[in-house]
Computed example of a mutant assay.
Amino acid sequence: MMTWLLLGLGLVLLVAGADTLVKGAARLAGAFGIPSLVIGLTVVAFGTSAPELAVSVKAAYAGQAELAIANVVGSNIFNVLFILGVSAVIVPLVISKQLIRQDVPIMVAASFLCVWMVQDGQLSRFEAAVLFAGLISYTVFLFRQGKQQGADGGDDEVEALLKEPHPMWQNVLFVVGGLALLVLGARLLVDSAVALATAWGVNEAVIGLTIVAAGTSLPEVVTSIVATIRGERDIAVGNVVGSNIFNILCVLGLSGLVSPVPLLAGAQMAALDIPVMLAVALLCVPFFFAGAILNRIEGALFLAAYVAYTWYLVALTLKLDYLPQLQDYIVYGLIPVIGVYVVLSLLNDFRQRRKQVAS
């Protein structure tokens, strides 16, 4: 019970630390004359992934090299299947053209790169440096694109945050306090996850793919669902896609750079979990492209896929008797259903576009 309480406390501290750090850093940047657009593209946009960064860096530095990758892979799967699934079930999500043409392909490319790099079972420091260089290039690209958009590219939420009067010392205190909460929360969460894995006799990666991944994605859950309820349905999708890109390029990159040994991807993770992460990213392409809307049926399919993946992961870890039947259900049931739905959706979208051109 104490382990679960410490794990819960760690999650609370991570979420509170990320929020506090973002507010303090954004106001400090504004005080130094940095435009709200740049703040929105860097500090705020990446702030929701601060828990994943803190946990993976702590795990890597402490020698739990497999937990560092598992956290990122599990978070990316959770973000798409669970967060977008729940959000789309609440209200169908609008997919912007920029997401379809730019951000989703970048997410897929980053996922492909991750799969290619860890096919030997590890992520070396050089490969981590390549990922982190990709983050810098991506951020510079977003900044230049935002400047070209001009005033229309501004972030209303950031501007509202900067208008709140706060003295400099308070902003510095927010940054320092936010970092301290993140460090403490990450330590509690990683230590609790390792303790649970030891008590249950399972691999640390399994805890990282499930409990830790879902917990560190809480800021994305809150941001996306609140944006959906408010009617900002494109923000809900953009938040998830941007977070997934950041997780691969920054969280994995920085974790690999600080780790004293290469980050590990065990046989199961390399053969199952990382390919699932790539498959989930690829699934976004037809679902987002068809009609530029993620409807309730597609949201339900996302949720069903997440439940099936998590259930299979638990059954595989615990070696449950019905594992072969569950695998047959997924391979011969759920996956074909999703495949048929994708084909029908694309055909229907093609017919609609032909009608529009004809008219």
Results as ranks from 00 to 15, higher is better:
Val12Arg: 14
Leu14Phe: 12
Ala18Val: 06
Ala25Val: 05
Ala25Tyr: 06
Ala26Glu: 06
Gly33Ile: 03
Ser36Met: 03
Leu41Lys: 12
Val43Arg: 13
Thr48Trp: 15
Glu52Val: 08
Ala62Ile: 11
Leu67Pro: 13
Ile69Met: 15
Val91Lys: 13
Gln98Asp: 15
Ala109Gln: 06
Cys114Tyr: 11
Trp116Asp: 06
Gln119Ile: 04
Asp120Gln: 09
Gln122Phe: 03
Leu131Thr: 09
Phe143Arg: 14
Asp155Cys: 06
Leu162Glu: 14
Leu162Phe: 01
Gln170Lys: 15
Asn171Pro: 02
Phe174Asp: 09
Gly178Thr: 07
Gly201Met: 01
Ile211Leu: 11
Ile211Asn: 03
Thr216Gly: 05
Pro219Val: 02
Gly231Glu: 07
Arg233Gln: 12
Ile235Cys: 09
Ile235Glu: 11
Asn244Gln: 07
Gly253Pro: 12
Gly253Trp: 07
Leu254Val: 15
Gly256Pro: 12
Leu257Trp: 11
Leu264Lys: 15
Met269Tyr: 05
Val276His: 02
Leu278Asn: 05
Leu278Arg: 05
Val285Ser: 00
Ile297Ser: 04
Glu298Val: 06
Ala305Arg: 05
Tyr306Cys: 03
Leu313Val: 04
Leu320Asn: 11
Leu320Phe: 08
Leu320Tyr: 10
Asp321Tyr: 09
Tyr322Gln: 13
Pro324Leu: 04
Tyr329Ala: 14
Val331Asp: 15
Gly333His: 10
Leu334Phe: 04
Phe350Gly: 02
Lys355Phe: 04
Ser359Gln: 13
Ser359Glu: 13
